[in-house]
Every structure is written in C-alpha cells, then in structure tokens.
Amino acid sequence: MTTFADVLPIRQLESHKYSANFESDWCIGTVPNGGYVTASFMLVASKHMQLTHSTRKQLHVVNLHLQFMRRTGIGEAIFTVKDVKLGGRISNLHLTLTQKDERSGKMVEEVMGYIMMSDMSAEDGLSLDSGYEMSPEPLPVSLPALVEGKDANYVRRGRDPFADFRRAGRHMAMHLVRPDKRPSHFPKAMIDQWVLFQPQGREGRHTNNALGYIVDIFPQILERYVNAEMEEACLGQDLSAEEAEALIKNRAQPNAKYWYPTLNLNLDVKKLLPEEGVKWLFVRVQAKKIQNGRFDLEVTVLDESGDIVALSTHSALAVDSSRNTTREKKDSKSKL
C-alpha cells in the first residue's frame, strides 16, 4: 500500500541538509499545499533522526510548529536542520526550507519551524482519562456501507468545482455528512469527514508521516459562505466531470475567487498509527472567527475507534486567488 513516504522521497545531501522535489499535482494553483509542505518537514525530521542520530531511535514527530513566511513553489526544496537539543526522551530540531528564486537565482527562506521528535512506541508514564468528548458529537457511520455509498449519514464528496486549481485535494477521498442529515445544531463553519488516502488514484494508507497533509486537506469552510451554490452541489453527491464543468460554466467566475494560504500550523500528535498504516481516519475542521481576511482553524483527527490521533491549529488568510497564480520575485521584501 502507498504511504506518504512513497509520495515524497527525501534525499540526504549532508548530515544536516536534505532535499525534496515538490510536484505540481500537490499544489493549490501554483503553490504546494501547506499540508503537503508540513508532511515534508515531518519526513525530513524523521529521516534526520534515522540517519544522523540513529542510536536515539527517535523517529516520530510528537509536536510541530511551522511558520509560512513566503509562498513555496514547484521544484527542489532544500531543508537545513539544526539540532537545538538532543535529549534522552525528546529531541528538538529547527528546520528551514529554502528554494531558489527563479529571477534572482538566490536561495530564499520560505518556511521554518520547530519539531519535537521521540520514540512513541517506547513512551511510558502517567496516563489519565480526561473525560473529553467531541461537541457536537459526530454522526455515527458504517464504514463498510460508506465504501459502497450506502451509509445513512455520510457520502463521498463529488469532484471539486475548481479541481484544476485545488489539485492537492485529488489525493484524498472525502466523505461528508449528507446535507439532509446535517443537524441544525452543527455550526456552519464546521466540517466532519471520513477520509481515504488515494495518491494519484492508488490505494493508500494513513500513517503518522502523512498527518501534516491530513490536517490540511478538506473542503474549504469559507467556500460554504462565498461560493455556496457550487460547494453545496459537491456535498452529498458524486459529480461527474461533465456536471462539475457545467456548474463552473454557469458561473461568471471560472476559477476559484479566493486562496486560503496558511500563516502558521501547529500539530500535536497523540497516537502512533501502525507502521503499515490505517485505511480510515475521521477529521473535524472548525473555524471560530473569520474576520478581515484572516481566520483560524481547529482540526481533530480520530481513528476508527474514536481515539484521538492528532490535534492541529492553523492561522490562515483569505486573499484573492490572483495572489497565488501571479508569481512575483522572492526577496527580502516579498509578501505572501
């Protein structure tokens, strides 16, 4: 089965320097998806501990904070790692992603962050039942029925109306609450989904190294407000390519009006998934305040048993999509 490590190979250049190649198929417009980039950081950190600090056996990301300073781009990305603190249980790394500016030819810092590494398989210590329950409670699901499109509460989301622009979403099969089953007490700015990893249409499995991507791939919440007609058409039915294109042609705006770039992303990993991965994960995404073109996201990931796998928070912008598709020179004065 395909995992995210197969999708994005990492190459070691030096003991503290690595490279990856960002592909167009994982982009939003011209910019690699923030979750795709986040997963690349996780893969680099794991590779670094495996190759440079192999005796520590700390291959698992337990906490991550990334700051997205400039847009990334398609092509080679260079990661530089600094060992901030190497500990017996947890090691702290500082990673910086740089890419070459096409016009100046200079390497520019685009994303940087801190990652905490540990051996989750060997964790031991105080464990207590917090009594936490999701509110509102997710609707029940029959995953075998969902595969056949027969679940009472969830159904696979159809083709994104701007699939060419949001190419990164093609690799995840999203199953959302049927519109006629969505309770009135569910906030509008909240999306529940059961997801399958299907890179390039292949059958995949969710593993810990994909969590960065998993927490940043979902139908955009703001589209439910600014583009409700087409977004609702994709919720609760499978659209053929012809039907989706017909919807687009009936609108004055042929492309997505907005782009939602990530400013920063935090990830707290609570559970180690099996090495071979799992088929299904549940993801809840919710925004609490959307104001002045800036908004927050809170993401909760559960496994089939309802156990928390990961928690994530994002800060993001809502800007005109032309900010994505019009590439400018990357220098010290460039903006997102």
Rank of each mutant, 00 (worst) to 15 (best):
K188L: 09
N250W: 07
E23T: 11
K181P: 07
D192I: 01
D238W: 13
R89P: 11
I90T: 14
E229T: 13
L86Y: 08
R284F: 09
L97T: 08
E76I: 07
V7M: 10
W280P: 06
L267D: 00
L97M: 08
M116F: 12
Q58R: 01
W194V: 05
P140Y: 04
D119P: 02
T3Y: 09
F79K: 06
V31G: 06
T98Q: 11
I290S: 04
Q237A: 03
S118H: 01
R294Q: 12
H206W: 15
G125L: 07
S54M: 08
Y260I: 09
K329W: 08
T3R: 01
I74Q: 03
P161N: 02
E14F: 15
W26V: 04
L297H: 15
V285T: 11
D129R: 11
Q237K: 11
L146G: 00
L146W: 00
M174Q: 06
P136W: 04
R323P: 08
S135K: 15
Y18F: 15
L146Y: 03
S135T: 12
G73F: 08
L126V: 12
V226A: 05
D6L: 00
M190N: 11
E276R: 14
N264T: 09
R178Y: 01
L13M: 08
S332V: 14
Q237L: 02
S184F: 14
D320Y: 10
D180A: 10
D119N: 09
I78H: 02
C234K: 06
S46D: 01
Y225K: 13
L139M: 04
A233S: 13
M174E: 01
M174A: 05
D83N: 10
S118F: 05
D164N: 10
N264L: 10
M120V: 07
N63C: 09
V195S: 05
E109H: 10
L64F: 08
H175G: 00
G34L: 01
G169N: 03
L263Y: 12
K288V: 11
I28P: 06
K333P: 05
T72N: 12
F22T: 04
A287F: 05
R156K: 12
M112L: 11
L281W: 01
N324F: 06
L13T: 13
R167M: 05
I221V: 03
G88H: 08
R156C: 06
K329F: 09
A244S: 14
Y132H: 05
F165I: 02
K249Q: 15
V309D: 00
P219E: 02
V285D: 05
S15P: 13
T325I: 11
M190R: 13
V7F: 03
D25Q: 05
V31S: 13
Q220P: 04
P179Y: 01
N255H: 14
E275G: 13
N264I: 07
A287K: 09
S312R: 00
S46F: 01
D6R: 12
G212S: 04
M49C: 07
M120Q: 04
S334K: 01
V61D: 02
F165C: 03
H16G: 09
Q193K: 03
Y18I: 05
R70L: 10
R224N: 10
